[in-house]
Design a binder for these strands. Structure first.
Lengths: 360, 360
DNA sequence: TGGCGGTGAGAGAACGTTCTCACAAATCGC
DNA sequence: GCGATTTGTGAGAACGTTCTCTCACCGCCA
């Protein structure tokens, strides 16, 4: 029993040929006599030979692997994205390296470095802060493939796959106005506070002053909330912009509880699935009923939204398809496609359930 | 702007030393004068040098990466396991390659081959069929690290991290008997049918005749159902052993719908999270209320179980901790630990909610 | 002054592939 | 039947590291 995995040299020796010939026979390239080819393949088979991808990669400069930096694989949204990526990658013979950033910029930088060292052929990532992308500059400048998913950055020209969150939120909030709601709260990460203030200042100068891709997902979705208010002629009450400060269910629950204790709104919308779950838990903990006491529109079609109360209406993102699309775009770049970067915006669907009631 | 990533040779040249010295300076080994070391580090810094892990791996024989074969990263159980693995791996400087088997043996074999080619230092996997593990033999025989998670196999001596599913299910079913239920259904994948028959035949000869690790998770959990029946002196009604035949929510929903149309049981238990969701959807679709019309105990503490009906009581697996433990065991093997293989059984918790009612 | 231990650094092999080049043998065209 | 082309094969460089040798140099002591 060999202590070491068999190498091409051993296969070649067993078949009585040179390593060059063995490589040709197994790699199906160059000229090899049919009988030789078969002898080599038999030898490889009997030794249970597997080519060492590392050595191959050193020569070819390609590792047949792609790296993924997501916020958290355990989050259902990213889990679906990752599944979409791995399915496409596997179909094309690529392996996938997964890392989590936890929306922490330093972790993201570290992960990106680790993926670079692993010499992945391309990277798909959800940048934790679209404003701080300098660590990606060198990579992009050398025309190495990079696709952003869930977010884009106007500060860096790359491919991206996003959902039009602002428009989806605007539609949801408008729908609540149409049902007679006037005090509508929005629960999001909205961090840092200064970014929120910058957004309001910019929006005061007109829509053109704000580029949605300079914003984190939650703040970009807040623009939809603002737009709906303007369209319906309602001012924004800062007390109803509920800032959790972190992308966690717990933070959202605490922030929403505080809101509900003071002067409860008649409706609540959220900006992602963690915020939705946290906000809904807070509503339940406060003893309020949905939609009798408060209307609610969540983000992402998670399993629990189907059963909670009489069903929670949600903004549904095509997460799996986004992952697939991101992987396809990346592989196309790896294959040499050098067209200008493209931002693919995928449609969010509104799933109507029973969590919105008209105001009396 | 270099078309190629900078190499050690370029760093060495920039610092005016040999590659050997540059390697020593950056790798913090051997003897290097302090001033030289700093000059090299400065040069590396300014060139934005990153060691090529591939080349390093060729020499050291270690890739600092581990492979994971799970059924489906999108499944909340495996997503949590994977998160546990990646967290531990990252802390120790390892990257993680993720693949999905979809519980398909051929896909598993292919994934395993791909991981071998990638020369991962170790593998963590949920074997799709504990009976068919021959493709892992050579790997294990060469003492390469392999840890199984969620399942083990008596046919192959390896480390494993599992939950005592049979005991958890036995406790759940016993609890239903205590509440006066006599017609208790169990919904599981239970495939192939012959395996179920083999189990019943073996159990007829006594508990000793059946080794839980020769069984797929769902069938092993079925043993708990059988044990509870024997302990309470009830015969097994084959019509109440509901076989979905696939690990999908849809299959579970269809199989459960069929059950409910004929002669509904007074209680239902399930063997994993997909079965739980499918069964619960079928209950709702049939217009039945939980627990008034039918009592229900699910598997895995998913978000929806908190809100559905008046809360679903569940058997909760410590998925994240299982992933962490599996990663720790694997890394310990990679570090050279050669103690005999160990099977770590982690406790499942019973989370009591409002989905079980006493029978009138 | 000569031997010796310690320090710092370079030359070059090794890892397991791919790939270019060279070349012998076989086949072909006329 | 002789040059030209095709076919099959091997030698050896290359990829970017790590790591083992080797060696020059310095200071110290006898």
């Amino acid at each position: 029993m060999p202590r070491h995995a068999p190498t091409l040299v051993e296969v070649a020796r067993a078949a009585g040929v040179s390593t060059a010939t063995a490589a040709r026979a197994l790699g199906n390239y160059g000229r090899v006599k049919e009988s030789t080819r078969e002898a080599v393949k038999r030898a490889a088979e009997s030794l249970n030979y597997r080519p060492n991808e590392l050595a191959r990669s050193m020569i070819t400069g390609r590792t047949q692997s792609i790296g993924v930096i997501c916020a958290d694989v355990y989050d259902p949204f990213f889990a679906a994205v990752v599944r979409g990526i791995t399915d496409v990658a596997r179909g094309r013979g690529y392996t996938v390296l997964i890392t989590n950033s936890d929306e922490n910029w330093h972790t993201e930088v570290e992960s990106f470095g680790s993926l670079q060292s692993s010499r992945v052929d391309g990277v798909i990532m959800a940048p934790s802060d679209p404003d701080r992308v300098d660590h990606l500059r060198a990579w992009v400048a050398e025309e190495r493939p990079l696709v952003m998913v869930d977010r884009a950055s106007s500060r860096l020209e790359t491919d991206a796959v996003v959902v039009d969150g602002p428009t989806a939120v605007e539609a949801a909030v408008s729908r609540l106005f149409d049902d007679g709601h006037e005090r509508i709260a929005i629960v999001g990460e909205f961090s840092p506070q200064s970014a929120v203030e910058r957004l309001f200042a910019a929006l005061a100068q007109g829509d053109e002053a704000v580029h949605p891709f300079d914003l984190s997902p939650s703040i970009s979705r807040l623009t939809g909330y603002v737009r709906a208010h303007r369209a319906h002629g309602f001012p924004i009450d800062p007390a109803l912009v509920v800032r959790s400060g972190a992308y966690t269910v717990e933070a959202a629950q605490i922030a929403t509880s505080v809101l509900l204790r003071s002067d409860p709104p008649t409706a609540i919308v959220t900006t992602d699935n963690s915020m939705s779950l946290g906000a809904y838990r807070a509503i339940r903990a406060a003893g309020l009923r949905v939609p009798e006491d408060v209307s609610f529109i969540g983000f992402d079609n998670q399993d629990w939204t189907e059963f909670a109360s009489s069903g929670i209406s949600v903004i549904d993102q095509p997460a799996y398809a986004m992952g697939q699309e991101a992987a396809r775009m990346l592989l196309s770049r790896i294959d040499g496609n050098s067209e200008p970067p493209r931002i693919v915006t995928m449609p969010a669907a509104f799933i109507e359930r029973g969590s919105v009631a008209a105001v009396r």
